[in-house]
């Protein structure tokens, strides 16, 4: 029996274009009710959305920190315009921990502590050690890596904390092209923010009606929802420090509580998965990547 689990919970950045009101209310509840240790905030997917969410952050940070959460600013995964690059530079000057999702940010943050986010290509222990040497304190590896591969990195790279993407639609690809705009016959520069209509992303089915992917502006995600529910001992043996829960519109406080019970050994994985399935997830449950298979594979029955 494992004693009180040392494994923490993190809430990842919101990938979707949520309104300022929705973001404010969401983080108020997280601050007050969710058993989460670390909260990543900020816009990661599309720089054009930043003017809408920027005003939300000061109050949100204060509220989250008052609630005892560590706040980490997450930065754009594909900064390109001068304004976007400037915003990355400004966020990297923050005294708090910052999450880097493109090596553009390393230019501004090298030598100071940062989180290496899941959009960086960290596929082996040598690359992980290189980034630790530049200041990486936490590494959340790309979602397509298996737990075994992450464990190999984590066991040979002691000085970094490893974080695993455990819950939410998987971020699979980024493009220079906006698929919401393309679908609506618009150009990216005059997109009318149609992505705001799809708070969990817009479902993409095959022409034979199979559920497959979801689009969120320039981002493509899985249709299915990662619900990685390991035995806590599996995480300990792989030197995993934290699980990351990626926000969807389901009750994320309930999701966080279920994961906390899992990590504390109060509920077994199958019970936690059943709890999650009752919350109205936007797709079937999967955990294939972490088990070493195709990402779309459903968890095997225990």
């Amino acid at each position: 029996m494992i004693p009180a689990s040392p494994i923490e919970l993190a809430l990842g950045p919101v990938f979707f274009h949520w309104s300022a009101d929705r973001l404010t209310n969401f983080y108020r509840r997280i601050a007050d009710e969710a058993p989460i240790d670390r909260v990543y905030i900020g816009e990661v997917v599309c720089g054009k959305r930043m003017p809408f969410s920027d005003p939300v952050w000061p109050e949100t940070i204060e509220r989250l920190e008052r609630g005892g959460k560590q706040v980490v600013f997450s930065t754009l995964a594909t900064p390109s315009t001068a304004r976007e690059r400037k915003s990355v530079e400004e966020l990297c000057a923050d005294g708090r921990l910052v999450e880097i999702n493109d090596l553009t940010a390393l230019r501004f943050r090298s030598g100071q502590p940062f989180v290496a986010g899941p959009f960086l290509n960290i596929y082996n222990e040598a690359t992980a050690r290189f980034l630790v040497g530049s200041g990486a304190q936490t590494i959340c590896p790309p979602v397509e890596l298996s737990l075994a591969a992450i464990g190999t990195m984590a066991r040979t790279c002691f000085s970094a904390e490893f974080e695993v993407f455990a819950f939410g639609r998987l971020p699979l690809a980024l493009s220079g092209r906006c698929y919401h705009a393309r679908l609506h016959g618009l150009h990216k520069d005059s997109c009318q923010f149609t992505c705001e209509q799809d708070a969990d992303g817009l479902a993409v089915d095959t022409i034979d009606g199979q559920e497959f992917l979801a689009i969120n502006g320039v981002q493509t995600l899985s249709h299915q929802v990662q619900t990685f529910c390991p035995q806590p001992s599996e995480l300990v043996s792989n030197n995993i420090r934290r699980l990351r829960l990626s926000p969807q519109t389901v009750d994320m406080v309930a999701v966080a509580r279920a994961y906390r019970r899992l990590l504390d050994g109060q509920e077994p994985p199958e019970t936690v998965r059943f709890v999650l399935s009752s919350l109205g997830l936007p797709g079937m449950q999967i955990d294939g990547y972490l088990r070493g298979g195709p990402g779309c594979q459903a968890p095997s029955p225990i």
Partner: peptide, 15 residues
């Protein structure tokens, strides 16, 4: 059409 090196679509379906 995706940013090179930032695309996991193939492994999502095939591994």
């Amino acid at each position: 059409v995706m940013v090179e090196g930032r695309c996991h679509l193939s492994s999502y379906a095939t591994g």
